[in-house]
């Protein structure tokens, strides 16, 4: 190819990319830049920001000055909320894996023409608004809700179990909502799986457990990792589920950020917390890329 042709090809490639790049730069980086700048400003008296530089917001993400003793120490409240968010998100990922993997395996082992129907059943809940699904869970586990009424009627329990407004409720809600995000990638990697390998394993006297661990799981691993990330990331920023099912007694990161922009009237702190959330997600993604990268090396 001549130089001129190469230049032309390059130019048209850039031209074709331009709309996508413009959207990325203005719609993604732009707002992010504003958030970054705001996080270094001073809070306005009644919300908003004052244009004078201050590191206070970043300082108070993890540190605080006690109002009563004026001692400077770790921001215990913020750290507990970070920890709760990360813990619940990891547990959600684990829970969706425990339920999602067998589901995906089941679907992948059905006859090809039946699989689409099963996939459809997995996807149907996605057609319903998140809020409505969350309220449906609430109706199920309320003190006077379906589950408790059924258990009472069957005489299994004497008084309603308090399930709503607990960490269990948040976990249940998030696992239910994000389950398809775990099933889909695992299914995608199992769908291409050659099941004669399983037979080969049995031929070599491998136990069922050993086949699962040494043959099926390694090949499904990219899907599991992708699914875990897809579940972990939105769980970390979850806002509606902790608010509705957690009873609002215990904040998660999303709720803490909202507080700063609302009643807290501390936009810079809200901005700094948002970027902290972003940083946690970035770390998770880097770990994912590393894990996925290793995988390719081994098989490539």
């Amino acid at each position: 190819m001549s130089d001129a042709a190469t230049t032309r090809a390059t130019r048209s490639r850039w031209l074709l990319l331009a709309p996508a790049l413009a959207v990325l730069v203005f719609a993604a980086s732009g707002p992010l830049l504003i958030v970054l700048i705001y996080s270094f400003l001073t809070p306005g008296d009644y919300g908003g920001v004052v244009w004078s530089l201050s590191p206070d917001a970043w300082f108070s993400v993890v540190m605080e000055q006690d109002f009563f003793t004026e001692e400077i120490g770790f921001a215990d409240a913020h750290l507990s909320i970070f920890w709760r968010s990360i813990k619940l998100s990891l547990m959600t990922a684990l829970l969706t894996f425990v339920f999602g993997f067998p589901t995906a395996y089941f679907i992948a082992t059905r006859p090809r023409e039946k699989r689409d129907i099963w996939m459809l059943l997995i996807i149907i809940p996605f057609w319903t608004n998140l809020l409505i699904r969350t309220f449906a869970i609430m109706e199920l586990i309320r003190a006077e809700g379906t589950v408790n009424s059924a258990l009472l009627a069957l005489g299994i329990i004497d008084e309603p179990i308090q399930m709503l407004f607990t960490e269990f409720a948040i976990l249940l809600g998030m696992a239910y909502v994000y389950l398809p995000l775990m099933v889909l990638p695992i299914y995608a990697s199992l769908e291409r799986f050659d099941f004669t390998l399983v037979e080969a394993g049995y031929d070599l006297y491998a136990s069922r457990w050993r086949v699962l661990r040494k043959v099926i799981f390694p090949l499904a691993k990219p899907g599991v990792i992708a699914g875990s990330i897809l579940v972990f990331v939105p769980s970390l920023g979850a806002y509606v589920t902790p608010r509705v099912l957690g009873g609002g007694k215990q904040l998660m990161l999303g709720n803490l950020i909202e507080l700063q922009f609302g009643a807290g009237r501390n936009w810079p702190l809200g901005a700094a917390l948002s970027l902290t959330l972003l940083a946690i997600v970035m770390v998770a993604l880097i770990l994912y890329v590393r894990a996925a990268g290793n995988e390719e090396v081994r098989h490539g």
Binding site: F67, D76, A77, I81, Q250, N255, A263, G264
Partner: peptide
């Protein structure tokens, strides 16, 4: 009435601690 920012700041800290 609208509380001054210094009061608001302490209230937010207490409120956050309450919900941690």
């Amino acid at each position: 009435k609208t509380c001054p920012p210094e009061a608001q700041k302490i209230y937010t800290a207490i409120w956050t601690e309450l919900q941690k």
